[in-house]
Design a protein around this nucleic acid. Sequence first.
DNA 1: AAGTGGTCTAGACCACGGA
DNA 2: CCGTGGTCTAGACCACTTC
Lengths: 235, 235
Amino acid sequence: MRSYKDIHNILLDRIKGGEWEPGALVPSEADLAREFGCTRVTVNRAMQALADSGLIERRRKAGTRVVQRMTRNAVFEIQLVRHEIEQRGGTYKYLLISRSEEKPPQKVRAEMGLSGDNALLHVISLHFADGAPYQLEDRWISLDTVTQARREPFDAISPNEWLLREIPYTNAEHVFRASRAEPMDAEFLNLGEGEPVFVIERTTWLSDAAVTHVRLVHPADSFRLVTRDQHGTAL
Amino acid sequence: MRSYKDIHNILLDRIKGGEWEPGALVPSEADLAREFGCTRVTVNRAMQALADSGLIERRRKAGTRVVQRMTRNAVFEIQLVRHEIEQRGGTYKYLLISRSEEKPPQKVRAEMGLSGDNALLHVISLHFADGAPYQLEDRWISLDTVTQARREPFDAISPNEWLLREIPYTNAEHVFRASRAEPMDAEFLNLGEGEPVFVIERTTWLSDAAVTHVRLVHPADSFRLVTRDQHGTAL
DNA sequence: AAGTGGTCTAGACCACGGA
DNA sequence: CCGTGGTCTAGACCACTTC
């Protein structure tokens, strides 16, 4: 018998192989169901998977077409810094640098979409791989959303890890860029000022409430982000 | 009536709201089906969506649990450079720098997983935004996989655009990093040597055959990669 | 109006894997 | 063993959108 996965793969091959060209109209579910000797539901499931991975577009009555758009998606996995390091067989160390309640700069406030001028929790810390500074974490935490953070010293566990363990989030925004080491970056990462660094800025929300905004700075030489992407592999 | 999307959202709320904590066992499909007054299939569909977005883990007999593993996926969209620039209202310009058949350096060969020592097509080109160099494209194209490339001069259309239009691919690997401008980068991007750049290296395959490997270099100041991610949003 | 995808039900069998 | 998820069928109704 043909499972929806079989059908998915067959259809995938037809697209990859060029049998169904970009923009082409694909047979209807009913036709394919007849062809494969199964129910329309089964075909539907295979096609939904293809649509989810962005290879086809479906519209009622208009039918299903192979996409023409020239964008593809790439997926990367967000891990704990600690796991990232340990997974490569490195030794991880964490160091708290400072922890205070402060009013954030305008830029952070804007990024998090905050309206009032409440103080946030500002935690700066450092992550080491094999004894060398690997990542500087400069983080702002909303005390309105994450009230528990007020009681957490962050001296033994990084905000990164604590938040990920304690606080769910629903939305995230990432910005990746190359930049020059700022004075603080240079000091803690043992770099000359202006040397290249890889910066990740991440803001997360729980529903509409901002949770945290963080700036993660890595020495350019010791950091790379890798993705491996396959068509048809859903998230 | 309750649709699978309703159920999906209800379950999502229970996870987000902390009613079902990380690691907790979720009721069985049969129980939930009774609770919502629908078929098990409908519940199954809602749960599959949650599993796809990585919020729950399901195992036969063991049941379904809210994940504890704290990795999440982020998705970014890969566009044509031209579209990227035009979408921001910028003016795009393309310039071919060189085009030749050469044996690639060992590093490129390894990245593409090539065994022989065939020559590849080596195309270097430059993409401008509003008159300023935006991206240097240093690309190797497999002439075995992409025989048509031999006849394409790439003087009017960039390899980036040509490949995306002509050649399907099935797998891709991306590496993102910050780096120092190499001599060639500095020359074409109007940078001082050693200044920070943002580098993307992409290799793509069609089934198991390598298609192309490219190194895309951007001045650090004018490039950022942004993602916006929501739970439950499949690819 | 009619064709196409979206979804549900009721019932069934199977595959996996924990106890 | 047996509970849980994985999947299929047959039939049905609905929702959308183009013709």
